[in-house]
Design a binder for these strands. Structure first.
Lengths: 176, 176
DNA sequence: CTGACTGCAAACCCTTTGCAGACCG
DNA sequence: CGGTCTGCAAAGGGTTTGCAGTCAG
């Protein structure tokens, strides 16, 4: 599926402006990666972008696509689908409920809301396919993270502090 | 955070009943893994469960925790947070919008809804932290997948004559 | 020109899987 | 006791990173 041509042009303009303002270089690779995502309706992943971009830039590498997507996300011209999840998380609450998710530490808290559980589904959505359920995710920064967020907010691109993403202790295999 | 003790007991009862009905064995490991998730409010990931369970079963392995969580999910006594995502997906649409997600092929389609964008946030949620945005995900099976789903719907862990364990092998990537 | 960027490959993290011994029922 | 399960190690798939050569500004 393709995005409207005018909208794509608008996005490209914004993209170039942001890139220039951030002082990073505007390379073919970056332009083509952005153009691909900007012109696509179906939320491609890195490999889909890679396959598409490689048709025009035959020497582009998957690594560059990853690096570029990450850069564009940091610059704020691209978003990702859902908050970043390092790993799969489990839930024994089988009743209908919704989630509050902290964008910094990943804390998740359940809540219930009759309003949210009974949302009317737009007709255009029903045309896409059968509806199985509706889930609401409220995102924000939890009490504990609100403060800590400030110091990190200056991070432009390049050196992302990724302070909270502390790689936890891994499993000790041999020995121990 | 801890779940109410009565609720935990109820969940454990349901768990044992389902395990028995499915004809799979009720081992210490499985019991402890389930107890850990059932008693936790914060949606632990496999490693968090592993760390907690290992305090009581010092020899448990991370692999078993993974296997058990997957089993419990298949049995329907546990759920996962959000639909399974094989990889990160990107989006150049920065305007407020919501998503329809196909649970089988991963297709994502944007849509807008004034109702959904203006949902009132329950007071209890505001206490958890600052609210940054509200995102609605409508899940179901898209037109293309509705049919194919039937054939796959055979039970995964039901009691069944030996020799025909079905393994799920779908690892398709979403199509454009 | 010169340092930011790219391509390559190897590392990393989370998760799954093949195998042989352990243990539930 | 026999077939499930577990623990182990190693593979897999997605993503990141160190390095040296390359290209935008």
């Amino acid at each position: 599926m393709k995005v409207d041509e005018n909208e794509v042009r608008r996005r490209l303009g914004h993209f170039e402006a942001v890139v220039r303002a951030a002082g990073v270089r505007l390379t073919h690779q970056r332009l083509e990666v952005f153009r691909e995502v900007a012109g696509s309706l179906d939320h491609p992943d890195a490999e889909a972008v890679f396959r598409a971009v490689r048709k025009r830039l035959r020497t582009v590498s998957l690594d560059t696509v990853y690096r570029t997507l990450r850069l564009l996300e940091d610059l704020g011209v691209l978003g990702t689908l859902g908050p970043r999840r390092e790993s799969m998380r489990f839930d024994a609450n089988l009743a209908s409920h919704h989630h509050y998710v902290c964008l910094r530490c990943g804390l998740v808290r359940d809540f219930e809301s009759a309003d949210m559980s009974a949302l009317p589904i737009p007709a255009e959505v029903r045309e896409v396919g059968e509806v199985h359920g509706t889930f609401v995710e409220v995102r924000g920064f939890c009490r504990a993270c609100e403060g800590k967020r400030q110091e990190e907010s200056t991070a432009k691109h390049q050196k992302r502090p990724k302070g909270q993403e502390r790689r936890r202790t891994w499993r000790r295999r041999s020995g121990s």
